[in-house]
Design a protein around this nucleic acid. Structure first.
Length: 930
DNA sequence: TGTCTGGAAAAAACG
DNA sequence: TACGTTTTTTCCAGA
């Protein structure tokens, strides 16, 4: 940890030239020290707290502090948050709070060289590393706070409203980005107060113009180019980077940007865009240039929108917000963080013109930029000096109109926090799941359209239990679908689609480095939204991997999930935040065509004797497909593997019947969790699906989560929605970084909570969020209660004293280690039952509400199905209710079953990833100078 | 004309 | 280091 911090600090400072930096350093240093201890104690939390808040260490609930800060300007908890937010780090920040250092890199402090950071992180387990952004954040925050204090102004905010009408145009990344970055995006971080919605101002030029779409600038105007393409790169490429030699793909941002990457490529003539031409990179387009009319102008604000917008304020807490905002600006300092070094360098030169566009990875930049924009006046100075140090100078633009301050949600949970899908009377459900495959488009390509539903049409999301007349905003972002906790996907961004065929109004906003699509949920539509406005943009791996702090690798990391969130203000001032995530979506071209995908299974547990036929439904099954059952030890090595008998005669491309093999040990006394996968060839395997072998005497329980699948069921087999873990196994659970994590009160989680709710947080329901200043407090873990085993995540939600609960992403390690449950649908559910009071299961008042039932979701089941998963930690911890998660109806036995393996990773995935990471780390040095 | 798509070549990453 | 394979990214072209 220490190292990390140190590094961060240094790096940042190095960048930051700003005056006061030293001060900041000192502070940081001290903070770091504190944090460190804190971290030790509380994992990630520390960082956040640290900075400004002394609370710290001792304090169990950082979050609280954090929030507290909000209330008290001084501390600037909020600032931290915000800072984080502002910086892009929101997530991080947030996460940071909860996450241990290692978490995502995004937030990583700006190091001069990303590599360095990585190295530092390397210390930690992969997981940790990845997730850990926290530290950085912390630092940043600290820094920010320090620095920031001064900045306040929100004048400059961009008008969110302006956003991306372009999007429509949008398909093009440029636009999109532009929009997002420029107009559309709205960084929560940045602008806290106003909700973008509220101020729909349209920028005359279109914000985009400012940012300008790369297109214009781009030399080559290939249609494809997405202007926005990677901003950074673009900039870089165009100006800074001369053409690179082809062969090398840029690993470094530069490369990417440089285009070298591709551009480089081809000797062949295909890749036109090389640096020079690099269209996409063009992003660099000078704002001015942006030929593209900014979407802003776009009328997009429909009446509907307006209404919707009106709500925007919901979250706003004026005073606090204001304070926060002021603080927020700080983030500027860090802006550089997200940017790959090279890029930054380049950027420096470019300065203003480049501005907004950020590389994919650069989104950070974008954020930054936005930030810059927002506070422009004050910020600019900072930016350039500090953070930007040259990089992202954003041209100041003239936003004539006052920034719409988006509402900032200082208190809103970070995107990597795990939230429940239902709380109290509310239940957010995905009524219609997206197709399992959607080819994402690159910035260099045109849009590939909106994500479609498997049954045709588009995904549908509905909020149940909401009886108010005020419309709400549904947020959508692209999340991960791996074994770890659900978090924003670093390599994919949601892309706003507009056009004739799009019936749903949307609006882009940036939060942290993640683009969010905000969609109105209106009472007149029964709080139901058809998601026909969301496409998926693929960012180049090289761009993202170079990002500072980014530890995830993009290769083979092509599965994502649509993550929906809604924040409901309560009369008492609290906010209930719900989240539902879709089934995993394979976004690569090739994979979608060849890899088998198991979407549902008719049986998820059966006695060790086996013999029962299980129906699998999914995609790309072949007559030669094999189904392998595997049991792995916690250390990852195979304990047992056997090929199950596939009924060749019944094999269809979308369904397959397999006989459950006999387990190796017929005398198990407790359920044993194993995995199985479908294999079409050497490297063509599906992700692991979960399966539990039950002791002979245990009543068989079919876990069919839902009857829904029955329909599928051929032969009467009822299907479970996705494998528990399976694909996404992700997340669900949150490890709570701190066991003690506090939950915030709110509604009790979904009704059925078996688990007792922690007394401590009586009211807390994971879901709730308190906007109140105090709100997210983090609780430091003291309590083992949550059990999360030491590292492991606890599913959880935090409760802050009295506040809302959230789950945190577990620490990286944890995450990996965890078994997690994963709820495809809603991760949240999983939470640890016990301590936190979450229940895996929800009962919903709403019709379909219960997650479990999630009837609503056709796939609904899907969402919650996994529930079974439980958090290992819990299991281990014992304290928590073992129950866990079983969502379904799984038999009692299920409850017992806990997964023993905390984490089973998909080999294909994880193994590869791990290796890659290892390699990467080993090569870091190399890259560094490269 | 512009958006979507499917397909595939070229480049890069791996082993 | 060379080479084959796999994956990623860019282009092309048709609807």
């Amino acid at each position: 940890m220490q190292d990390t911090f140190c590094l961060s600090v240094n790096s940042k400072f190095s960048f930051g030239a700003a005056a006061g930096k030293e001060r900041g350093l000192q502070l940081l240093t001290s903070l770091a020290a504190e944090m460190k201890s804190a971290e030790e104690d509380a994992y990630s939390y520390t960082p956040n707290v640290s900075l400004s808040l002394p609370l710290g260490m001792g304090n169990p609930c950082l979050a609280t502090q954090y929030h507290t800060l909000q209330s008290s300007p001084v501390i600037s908890v909020s600032s931290c948050h915000q800072t984080g937010y502002n910086l892009q780090n929101d997530n991080h920040a947030a996460s940071g709070y909860y996450l241990p250092h290692g978490l995502r890199p995004n937030g990583a402090p700006a190091l001069e060289s990303p590599r360095i950071e990585i190295t530092a992180y390397s210390q930690y387990p992969e997981d940790e590393v990845e997730e850990s952004n926290t530290d950085d954040h912390v630092i940043k925050r600290g820094v920010n706070s320090i620095v920031t204090l001064t900045l306040p102004n929100a004048d400059g905010y961009r008008d969110p409203s302006c956003l991306s009408p372009a999007s429509s145009i949008s398909s093009r990344s440029c636009n999109s980005e532009a929009s997002s970055y420029e107009s559309s995006f709205y960084n929560y971080d940045n602008s806290p107060q106003n909700s973008p919605w509220q101020s729909p101002c349209v920028s005359p030029r279109g914000s985009s113009s400012l940012l300008s779409c790369p297109h214009a600038s781009g030399p080559a105007t290939s249609p494809h180019h997405s202007p926005s393409t990677s901003p950074q790169i673009g900039a870089v490429a165009e100006e800074g980077w001369p053409a690179q030699p082809r062969g090398s793909r840029p690993n470094s941002p530069s490369c990417s940007g440089g285009g070298g990457g591709n551009g480089g490529g081809g000797g062949m003539g295909k890749r036109k865009y090389s640096f020079n031409g690099a269209p996409y990179r063009q992003t660099s387009c000078s704002p001015n240039q942006s030929p593209t009319p900014s979407p802003h102008g776009s009328p997009r604000v429909s009446v509907t929108d307006e209404n919707w917008l009106a709500n925007a304020n919901q979250y706003t807490n004026s005073a606090i917000v204001a304070a926060i905002n002021a603080l927020t600006t700080d983030g500027v300092v860090d802006m550089g963080e997200g940017i790959p070094i090279k890029t930054r360098k380049t950027m420096i030169d470019h300065s203003s013109s480049m501005s907004l566009k950020v590389e994919p990875g650069g989104e950070d930049l974008c954020l930054d930029e936005e930030l810059c924009h927002e506070d422009y006046p004050s910020r600019l100075a900072l930016k350039k000096e500090n953070y930007c140090g040259g990089f992202l100078d954003v041209p100041q633009h003239p936003y004539p109109w006052s920034k719409p301050k988006p509402y900032l949600s200082p208190s809103l949970p970070a995107l990597d926090w795990q939230l429940p899908s239902c709380s109290g009377p509310y239940s957010l459900q995905i009524e219609l799941q997206p197709k399992s495959h959607h080819r994402a488009h690159y910035e260099t390509e045109g849009s590939r359209g909106a994500v479609k539903a498997s049954s045709g049409g588009h995904p549908v999301v509905q909020l149940y239990g909401y009886m108010e007349s005020e419309p709400l905003t549904l947020q959508l972002f692209i999340g991960t679908a791996d074994d770890r906790l659900l978090r924003p996907h670093a390599f994919y961004q949601v892309h706003r689609i507009t056009g004739k065929t799009v019936s749903t109004a949307s609006h882009e906003v940036m939060q942290s480095n993640t683009k969010l699509l905000e969609i109105p949920l209106q009472p007149e539509n029964n709080m139901r939204a058809i998601i026909d406005c969301a496409g998926i943009l693929k960012l180049r791996n090289s761009d993202i991997e170079l990002r500072k702090g980014e530890t995830d690798i993009g290769r083979k990391n092509t599965r994502v999930r649509l993550v929906f969130r809604v924040h409901i203000n309560q009369p008492n001032g609290r906010t209930v935040s719900l989240q539902a995530s879709s089934n995993p979506i394979e976004c690569s071209q090739r994979s979608a065509q060849e890899l088998p995908l198991v979407e549902k299974q008719s049986v998820d547990s059966y006695p060790a004797s086996g013999g029962k036929m299980m129906l699998l439904s999914g995609l790309n099954f072949l007559p030669d497909s094999k189904v392998m059952f595997v049991e792995k030890a916690q250390d990852g090595h195979h304990l047992w593997e056997t090929e199950a008998k596939v009924d060749k005669d019944s094999v269809k491309s979308n369904s397959l019947v397999v006989e459950i093999p006999r387990y190796r040990n017929q005398r198990i006394s407790s359920p044993v969790q194993v995995n199985f996968y479908v294999c079409n060839g050497k490297r063509k395997r599906s992700q692991y699906q979960r399966f539990n072998y039950l002791p002979p005497n245990v009543p068989i329980i079919k876990t069919e989560p839902s009857d829904e699948y029955d329909s599928l069921g051929t032969a009467g087999l009822s299907m479970h929605s996705k494998p528990y873990f399976s694909q996404p196994r992700l997340t669900p659970i949150m490890p709570v970084a701190d066991p003690d994590a506090c939950l915030v009160g709110g509604y009790p989680p979904c009704p059925p909570r078996h688990a007792a709710i922690p007394s401590s947080s009586p009211s807390s329901s994971p879901t709730l969020h308190d906007l109140s200043p105090v709100a997210y407090s983090k609780c430091l873990p003291h309590s083992p209660t949550h059990a999360a085993p030491p590292g492991p995540l606890v599913p959880s939600i935090q409760e802050t004293p009295g506040r809302s609960t959230l789950t945190h992403p577990a620490s990286p390690d944890h995450s990996s280690s965890l078994g997690m449950l994963h709820s495809q649908g809603s991760p949240i559910h999983l939470n640890s039952p016990g301590p936190h009071g979450f229940n895996p299961i929800y009962a919903n008042s709403s019709p379909s509400s219960s997650p479990v039932s999630h009837p609503s979701t056709p796939g609904g089941a899907v969402e919650s199905p996994f529930i079974q998963a439980y958090s290992p930690s819990q299991a281990q911890a014992g304290g928590s209710s073992p129950t866990l998660l079983r969502e379904d109806s799984s038999p009692p036995s299920m409850a017992i079953t806990v997964k023993q393996e905390p984490q089973e990773l998909d080999q294909m995935y994880l193994d590869d990833v791990n290796e890659i990471i290892r390699n990467d780390l080993s090569n870091i040095s190399v890259h560094t100078h490269a």
